[in-house]
Simulated scan of single mutants.
Amino acid sequence: MIHKPKIVVIGGGTGLPVVLRGLRDQDADVTAVVTVADDGGSSGILRNYINVVPPGDIRNVLVALSEMSPLELDVFQYRFKSSDQFFAGHAIGNLIISALSEMRGGIFPAVQELSQMMKIRGHVYPVANEPLTLNAEFTDGTKLSGEAEITAAHRQIKRVWVTTADGADGDQIQPVPEVLAAIRAADQIVIGPGSLFTSILPNLTIRAVRDAICESRAEVVYICNIMTQKGETDHFTDADHVRVLNDHLGQNFIDTVLVNIQPVPKNYLDFKQWNEISQPVGHDFQGLRDLGCRVISANFLRLKDNGAFHDRDRVVAELMNRLHQVHE
């Protein structure tokens, strides 16, 4: 039996599904580890009303790895119009995930059951089986709790950490055991792309997850964001992103960084439509090398709907290329 390479992708937000959609069609065993600290939009409302893990990021990851028909996926992703007062803004998939979480006594068993129903190629693991709260300390010494509030504050973040409803911190939080097992068995660990402080780091500030990654023999690849994010990474270079990751984990753990060097046309971006973005991430290749990183710089850019995104096919081709080189 031929060994399928095991790839673990860690993150949340809109960047994670892009990479997963491309990996789904590769001959690989793919596991997505998804943040449970989102508290904005439909996810936040459901979290507050019925005390479930926020389902939005999980919903998008399920869709990315699903082999259901386009019509079935469209129904799952359908979001009620704002004029539908009771259901305003809710995606049907969020309601289904929330209902199954109540029926099965937690988000993890709910997602495993839904994975079978949705014909998932791979595995989808919420990082924990309970909602987590993201906390941040800013460079001015002030602190805030809640992912949505932290992002809206538009202040420079110094560090973030997660807590449970009863006050347990990252040292005490128990991640889902399957998450740790997947990380330990991985041939490649992929981090990002996604919001550095609010999508990626909430997973990594759980000590058990952090330790498993640092102890892993797998190559750790960071897909650096193309654009900086308002209120999170203003004026950041690619090396700044890696430096923040390393500081939170207490060691230089990123082995390889994928960096887009294709210029983003200034007049193409619609900053009103994509109001989270600020400017292209700056390059500091010497800084990356000083952090012990292998740098792969290439055209990873895809221009779409007046926004700048990662080109899924080019990113996935590079990830698979890294796997083959490492294991030759």
Score class of each variant (00 low, 15 high):
20 L>N: 09
213 I>L: 12
54 P>D: 08
123 H>S: 15
309 F>N: 08
123 H>W: 04
280 P>E: 03
320 M>L: 14
25 D>E: 15
91 A>W: 04
233 T>F: 02
64 A>C: 08
52 V>G: 09
249 L>R: 06
309 F>P: 06
199 S>C: 05
185 A>D: 11
66 S>P: 00
8 V>M: 05
171 D>N: 13
292 G>I: 00
157 I>H: 06
148 A>S: 15
180 L>V: 15
26 Q>P: 07
125 Y>K: 03
44 G>C: 09
42 S>A: 15
233 T>N: 02
13 G>C: 09
39 D>K: 04
123 H>M: 03
253 F>H: 03
44 G>D: 14
257 V>A: 07
277 I>M: 10
147 E>Y: 08
177 P>V: 03
62 L>M: 05
277 I>K: 05
194 G>S: 00
191 I>A: 01
81 K>W: 13
309 F>K: 05
79 R>D: 10
78 Y>A: 09
97 I>L: 12
113 E>N: 11
20 L>I: 06
155 R>C: 06
289 R>F: 03
234 D>N: 07
63 V>I: 13
320 M>Y: 06
326 V>D: 11
320 M>A: 03
296 I>F: 13
248 H>D: 13
263 P>L: 04
310 H>P: 04
154 H>Q: 11
29 D>C: 07
220 V>M: 05
173 I>D: 00
243 R>I: 03
318 E>H: 10
148 A>R: 13
23 L>P: 00
79 R>G: 10
185 A>N: 09
23 L>K: 04
317 A>T: 12
43 S>T: 11
71 L>M: 14
38 D>A: 05
260 N>W: 10
250 G>R: 10
261 I>R: 12
281 V>Q: 02
160 V>P: 07
152 A>H: 14
296 I>G: 10
215 E>Y: 14
219 E>T: 15
159 R>W: 01
234 D>K: 10
12 G>V: 02
141 G>F: 02
16 L>G: 04
234 D>C: 08
70 P>W: 07
246 N>K: 01
176 V>M: 00
38 D>H: 04
6 K>N: 11
68 M>C: 12
15 G>L: 03
7 I>C: 12
223 I>V: 15
195 S>K: 03
33 V>D: 00
123 H>F: 02
17 P>G: 05
50 I>G: 06
296 I>C: 12
138 F>H: 08
241 H>K: 12
15 G>E: 04
50 I>N: 07
182 A>D: 08
183 I>F: 13
133 T>K: 11
309 F>S: 11
112 Q>A: 10
311 D>E: 12
82 S>I: 12
161 W>F: 10
121 R>W: 05
240 D>M: 00
186 A>F: 06
16 L>I: 02
300 F>D: 09
65 L>I: 03
37 A>F: 01
98 S>E: 07
56 G>R: 01
141 G>R: 06
31 T>L: 03
156 Q>F: 02
73 L>W: 05
203 N>M: 01
138 F>P: 05
37 A>P: 00
101 S>C: 08
209 V>T: 02
271 F>G: 13
256 T>V: 12
88 A>L: 07
114 L>Y: 04
178 E>W: 05
294 R>Q: 14
271 F>S: 14
